[in-house]
């Protein structure tokens, strides 16, 4: 019935889902254990926790959301959005940092 050739894109396989699932379980356990194993200060905690979160996010987007097997257009769009957010966060971080610390220009 369907003549649009795009519909039968990538083959899809349950084993990929299981593999990624166990990987995510492992990462989640790591997330929960981090405070129990080592007590870090806020900065390091954030780096560790967000590091794990971004790794998880990568696997979810790449495999659960099939970006790995999608057309380059989707990949480009995702890079754009991620870069945009980093720039936005960067600009806000610059403002917050200079506003709330005594390091601003013209020393006032």
């Amino acid at each position: 019935m369907n003549t649009n050739s795009n519909q039968e894109s990538h083959p899809i396989n349950a084993s990929v889902y299981y593999n990624v699932f166990f990987l995510l379980i492992g990462l989640t356990v790591l997330t929960l254990l981090q405070p129990v194993i080592i007590n870090l200060d806020l900065g390091s905690t954030l780096i560790v926790q967000l590091g794990i979160a971004f790794t998880k996010a990568f696997f979810i987007v790449a495999y659960y959301m099939h970006i790995k097997s999608s057309s380059p257009l989707f990949k480009k769009l995702i890079y754009t959005t991620v870069v945009l957010w980093f720039v936005l966060y960067g600009l806000m971080a610059i403002d917050t940092y200079y506003r709330y610390t005594p390091n601003d220009l013209f020393n006032n």
């Binding site: 519909q7 997330t31 929960l32 981090q34 405070p35 806020l42 905690t45 954030l46 926790q49 967000l50 794990i52 979160a53 998880k56 996010a57 979810i60 987007v61 659960y64 959301m65």
Partner: peptide, 28 residues
């Protein structure tokens, strides 16, 4: 495609929680 998009949506919901959880519960 509807089910696929629903699955995408659900992955997004999951994705958000991946960040919400450590930021609220685990920063102590």
């Amino acid at each position: 495609v509807v089910l696929e998009n629903t699955a995408l949506y659900w992955d997004l919901v999951h994705l958000v929680w991946v960040f919400v959880f450590p930021l609220f519960y685990l920063i102590y």
